[in-house]
Write a protein that binds this DNA or RNA. Structure first.
Length: 441
RNA sequence: CGGGGCGUAGCUCAGCCAGGUAGAGCACCUGCUUUGGGAGCAGGAAGCCGGCGGUUCGAAUCCGUCCGCCCCGACCA
């Protein structure tokens, strides 16, 4: 993408509304624009990141055996009356009427809808287990939306729903999601910590939330320091095999949210205890027959008798992750995208657009990067060098390929790593081979 | 929903206390000079001062009301 043809409304000053760093950088980098309280338009740069995250989530869900589908944003109130949640959910649910005065709602979650689909289609235990997910916009009319996309009212979420016969199978489905969440967040360059959690309005009796550590996180977290060093990528995972050992490995070490942590009874020695701030990016629930029973989602078991299916639901806040990753990865100059979620792999800077040699060199590099399958934002604008550097640092692409007349006279360009700040003077050919041949992103 | 605050140009803000016909920086447009860390000079365009009502000869400024937004708290992917 040529910057001259892209839509990247950079702000030099952050709007006064934005308080936390991710919100400020998202606005300054032209990723989002607020439409109203807690509701955002996703501008091109933000959408690219949102899609990258979405795709990683999708791939890991698929890998874990979940099957993608798509449910609507608008739901009928009738289903929610069946489960009893039409009353329970309260004002957080946005209720609307259609022209026939039918009561509708903008879905805050989809347990009812998926249970309805399931009961209509599945009658036999032979079709179980099953895990269906979708990635769709949700709306929760938060009392106080804040922190940009971190706590919007409208948000993009992956939600999966598992159906199983019996407790053991249901827990296996739960464990599958548990492990896939660890993998999902690890791929985004995040260290996620699973915390035993309350089940809240979703219901049930087994639940974990996944939080990532960031200084600006909303809640305090206490955990054993070794938990921060666990790495799921070194564990080979067989989703059909026994996952309990993996789950145990990740839950044996102490980890507790602020409200559950008691310094007096904490089993971890003070020198091993880490206190940090966290952002919740995922939450999984096992809730048995809470919905299947009232809604009549039953299957015939091996003995021919009907039993309600055991369910779980599993959410990842996709749009929240965009902000969460920035919270976890930025510096004073701007965002520092992990390569896996960066909107472009490479930022190509032409320091002097009016210089013929620079333009020719940049065009060549740009073409070769694209031909090799690398995404590249080519800054071909006629701005001063300082402006270009500051802008590219702000939007945080992992690699900057800098072409200026001074170095080009000796046939060299410069390659800068956004994260480390390391710059090397290098030939264009070497730069290309480093960007293309090496596994980046 | 309780408490606090703010709405003036795309963004950051001044002006309001003490009423007199709209300001700055950045961004934008034109020209020239610049080009390795947010360039310089000159010129230009841009605002029903959140809406409505009131007081007044006169309201961005004072009063009332509504709307929007932000922050703190209780709730949440």
């Amino acid at each position: 993408m040529r910057l001259s043809r892209f839509f990247l409304p950079i702000l030099r000053d952050a709007p006064a509304d934005a308080q936390i760093v991710s919100h400020r950088y998202m606005l300054r980098a032209g990723m989002v624009r607020q439409a109203s309280a807690g509701i955002y338009s996703w501008l091109p740069l933000g959408l690219l990141v949102l899609k990258k995250i979405e795709q990683i989530v999708r791939e890991e869900q698929d890998r874990a055996g979940a099957v993608e589908m798509l449910m609507p944003t608008i739901q009928s109130a009738d289903l929610w009356r069946e489960s009893g949640r039409y009353q329970d959910y309260g004002k957080e649910m946005l209720r609307i009427q259609d022209r026939h005065k039918r009561e509708m709602l903008y879905g805050p979650t989809n347990e009812e809808l998926i249970t309805d689909i399931f009961r209509y289609s599945i009658q036999s235990y032979r079709d179980l287990p099953m895990n269906l997910y979708h990635i769709q916009w949700k709306f929760r009319d938060e009392i106080r939306p804040r922190f940009g996309v971190m706590r919007g009212r409208e948000f993009y979420m992956k939600d999966a729903y598992s159906f199983a016969l019996g407790y053991a199978a249901a827990v296996h489905a739960y464990n599958q999601m548990f492990v896939s969440y660890l993998r999902t967040f690890a791929r985004m360059g995040l260290q996620a910590i699973p915390l035993r959690a309350e089940t809240g309005p979703i219901g049930g009796n087994l639940s974990h939330e996944f939080i990532i550590l960031a200084e600006t996180g909303e809640s305090a977290v206490y955990c054993h320091k070794d938990l921060l060093d666990l790495d799921i990528s070194t564990t080979s995972v067989d989703y059909d095999g026994d996952l309990q050992s993996v789950v145990d490995y990740w839950t044996d070490l102490y980890a507790a949210a602020d409200e559950k942590h008691d310094p007096d009874t904490c089993p971890v020695a003070p020198e091993d205890l880490v206190e940090a701030k966290g952002i919740e990016v995922g939450h999984i629930f096992y809730f048995g027959s809470k919905y299947s029973e009232p809604m009549g989602a039953v299957v015939s078991g091996p003995d021919g008798k009907e039993v309600p299916v055991e369910m779980g639901s599993y959410g990842i806040g996709v749009s929240r992750l965009v902000g969460g990753i920035i919270e976890a990865s930025h510096d004073d100059d701007g965002i520092v995208w992990p390569e896996a979620v960066a909107p472009f792999d490479v930022g190509l800077i032409n320091l002097k657009a009016s210089d013929e040699a620079c333009a020719v060199a940049c065009e060549s590099l740009y073409g070769k990067l694209l031909a090799a399958g690398r995404s590249c934002l080519y800054d071909d604008k006629d701005d001063s060098a300082g402006t270009k550097f500051a802008r590219m640092d702000l939007i945080g692409l992992p690699w900057q390929l800098i072409v200026g007349p001074r170095r080009l006279r000796t046939g060299m360009v410069e390659l800068k790593n956004r994260k480390t700040g390391e710059r090397v003077e290098i030939s264009p050919e070497s730069a290309l081979s480093r960007l293309i041949d090496q596994q980046i992103g």
